[in-house]
Simulated scan of single mutants.
Amino acid sequence: METIKIDVPKKQLLLLLGLSALMTIVSAWVAYIGWEGTYELALLGSWTSPLALISGVIGFVFFGFSVYFWLMRYFSPKPALEITDQGVIDNSTAIATKTMIPFSNIEKASVQSFQGNDYLAIDVKDEEAVLNSVSALKRTTMKTNKNQFGTSLVIITLKGQSVADLERYAQVINERAGRGA
């Protein structure tokens, strides 16, 4: 069987990179306002500067990481998703599994929608094996998505792909996992 490689369109990655860079700059500006301490909102009073500094720094770190991730994703030779003859490799996001999920561990692949987006979702037989293969932050995020939003443990973000494309990828995964269509 041939390996299927799916990647996010470069145009989409540039948009995400640009938006992340813009938010990094805005966060730095908010942190600067907090640092200077000369700006005060009537509602917050003397708390304006400390809250601006804290939120600006948190935003700067978060969106700075986003810039780094989207830049690495843009220049990465790895596709966002690989469907090989042995399993599935998800490199689509910063919290992706990045290791192969063997077909023997795949219960079912489907398309799920949550928070207004469509995702390729994979239900696995041995969740602990998948959770043990990722970092603590990724593990927490995966568990939170599953428990709070009712998603599958593995959700794959493929920006720029239609629902029909996602359904086709789910069908290929199910076929290769021996689960039929």
Results as ranks from 00 to 15, higher is better:
81 L>K: 02
103 F>Q: 11
96 A>C: 11
110 S>C: 12
94 A>W: 15
89 I>M: 06
87 G>M: 06
100 M>W: 10
72 M>Y: 08
79 P>L: 07
92 S>T: 05
111 V>E: 14
79 P>H: 08
69 F>A: 03
94 A>T: 04
90 D>I: 01
78 K>Y: 05
93 T>G: 14
102 P>N: 12
90 D>K: 07
92 S>C: 07
69 F>L: 12
70 W>S: 02
114 F>K: 10
93 T>L: 11
110 S>W: 00
112 Q>S: 04
66 S>T: 00
76 S>H: 07
65 F>G: 05
101 I>G: 08
64 G>K: 02
64 G>V: 01
77 P>E: 13
66 S>F: 06
74 Y>S: 02
115 Q>D: 14
93 T>Q: 12
104 S>D: 12
78 K>H: 09
63 F>V: 00
107 E>Y: 12
71 L>K: 12
68 Y>T: 06
70 W>Q: 04
108 K>S: 15
105 N>H: 07
115 Q>C: 11
100 M>C: 04
115 Q>L: 14
78 K>R: 13
70 W>H: 03
95 I>H: 14
67 V>C: 05
67 V>M: 01
71 L>Y: 14
96 A>V: 08
64 G>S: 03
112 Q>L: 07
71 L>I: 00
72 M>G: 00
105 N>G: 06
99 T>L: 13
108 K>T: 10
115 Q>T: 10
67 V>D: 02
110 S>N: 09
89 I>T: 13
84 T>S: 15
114 F>N: 14
101 I>F: 07
68 Y>C: 10
106 I>Q: 04
86 Q>S: 12
84 T>K: 13
100 M>Q: 14
105 N>V: 03
98 K>A: 09
83 I>C: 07
63 F>P: 02
63 F>I: 01
90 D>G: 05
96 A>N: 09
113 S>K: 14
81 L>N: 03
111 V>D: 08
109 A>S: 08
105 N>A: 09
115 Q>V: 10
94 A>R: 10
68 Y>A: 10
88 V>K: 09
107 E>W: 12
95 I>G: 08
79 P>T: 09
89 I>A: 09
